[in-house]
Design a protein around this nucleic acid. Sequence first.
DNA 1: CCCTTACCTGTAACCCGTTACACACACTAT
DNA 2: ATAGTGTGTGTAACGGGTTACAGGTAAGGG
Lengths: 326, 326
Amino acid sequence: MPTIKDVAKYASVSVATVSRVLNKKGYVSKEAEENVLKAISDLNYKPNSVARSLYHKTSKMIGLLIPDISNPFFPELARAVEDVALTYGYTVVICNTDEDIRKEAQYLEALQQKYIDGLILTTNQLSTDNYENLGIPLVALDRQFSNRVPTVSSKNYEGARKATEYLIKNGSEFIAHIRGPYHVKPADDRYRGFKDVVEEQGIAHIVVDCDFTMTNAMEVAKGLFEKYPTIDAVFASSDIAAAGVLKVAKNINKQIPEDLQIIGFDGIPLGEMLTPAITTVAQPIYKMGALSARLLIKQIEKQLLDVRNYEVETTIQYRETTRSDT
Amino acid sequence: MPTIKDVAKYASVSVATVSRVLNKKGYVSKEAEENVLKAISDLNYKPNSVARSLYHKTSKMIGLLIPDISNPFFPELARAVEDVALTYGYTVVICNTDEDIRKEAQYLEALQQKYIDGLILTTNQLSTDNYENLGIPLVALDRQFSNRVPTVSSKNYEGARKATEYLIKNGSEFIAHIRGPYHVKPADDRYRGFKDVVEEQGIAHIVVDCDFTMTNAMEVAKGLFEKYPTIDAVFASSDIAAAGVLKVAKNINKQIPEDLQIIGFDGIPLGEMLTPAITTVAQPIYKMGALSARLLIKQIEKQLLDVRNYEVETTIQYRETTRSDT
DNA sequence: CCCTTACCTGTAACCCGTTACACACACTAT
DNA sequence: ATAGTGTGTGTAACGGGTTACAGGTAAGGG
């Protein structure tokens, strides 16, 4: 690979002139510029971005910390981040943290040593300081953890309310909520939305815990239906959980949506692939990912943020696991 | 962030000594070592990997070029690559190429400029030279493209044969094959496996094309069932396609597996989530990803490869879209 | 004709590690 | 006493860019 020195020699100028041409900075005569340009193309010269990084202390790389790319919620998010990053000339480093504090710390250290330009966080096991001390721009995606960090999330509370109200409107009288993990903000908000509505309207209800896996959701659902056979609707905190509920319900021959309504949350593609397709409170996942990437890059490029916190709308996707459809 | 000079000053030694301690190379007295170690921990010094990269022309980063992370086949692969990479101290840069020649070229250039240490390729739009000219270790994953490049793939031809034979054994007499894109080697091999079996056994069959999306699969399946209502089995080249077929079949009230058997290929988690769960020719996806990462890192670290090409076994996951189950 | 200003260019320091090389010392072998 | 080996340490060049600074030329104004 040719270096800037080779180009300089070939074009009979100094490296400074080459650099000036490359960066379109400072004065360069037309003649010199042409020579340099020709040298660059003749030698097929590509500036070395590591050397640039070293000097500028930036890397044109951003990190995306997610719990697990194989959780179907994240690929679309990652895709959006990557798409936006690419258009601005950034590359994305994906880090699966498994919500493990040690892996997270390990990644943070590695990324910092590489002069990573910014971080999108959908995970926050470490204390806030650990992130802020990195001294680089951050965006919290889906989960918020500090009011100093710009955040992109969706209206989880409202979405949960809408879902619950919809189930009730369709005639359900005993609703189960399968909630997500406790330390996760969206799961808490969805739970609150559910609880507030059922309590306001005096509807019989039950809440059970579940992690992010479908296997767990199936176990939980099985136990639920055995213990409370009269449950006539389930609001699941994720589409994965809803899919698990659906599978169990079909196995025990419940008619969907006649005997049991199911509504999920997230709006992942899986929901539509199932039969019956799952009604869900959809978040604009791609949009959230893209938005957070833009928000991050804006910070990196020292632009002022007009809005620091985005709460995007959720919309109910009316599909086949709920009755009536308006 | 402290630099090696700060550490040297604090420990009253030269930077060379600090470097020697860091890399455990050359002679260092016990006393000096202790001082340096103390300085490192007192100052919380972390060596700057960009500077290291510049000198060593390596980056401890590997690139993973995939068509699209939101295609459910890839997250598990990416996850495996990332897990292995992490244990060897590498970070992974994910590149969604969309099978687009220009995006691929753009990534290749960016990665090369960053001194990327190696590449795992599941995509090959560019000509072989473009990859080999990078002068870095490569691994072809899922698709092979040159006998100079170590490859990890699964026995697509055999898997397809097994699937087709299984459908026939279960009594199907008119089998459709929904094949994948033409330029993709695994799709071709699966097609050949299917064709050879139906021709050997003189079974009525039809082959139709389809891309990687479920929407397309649904369109294709709809057309197929309208035109050939007597089709009694479908072998789809991917689980996504199989899911599309299943959905269409259920919509037109075909009894699965009584009226119609469906078998997919890949073994993505989705297959199990559906009801009925899709019988599929499963590839050990995680294993393939992990294997290719190890293969790549071995090359990067100049170890000799005892085996250069891995063809992993496929296994039929007997589930609910096929009859009998042995 | 002198001074200012715009334009153009090169030298060298800098970013932060790594390592070749030189030098110094202690000890053994001859 | 002298050469040779193993230790221990520092200086400086290097990797490949960027840029402050110095210095040079030409044009325009007074």
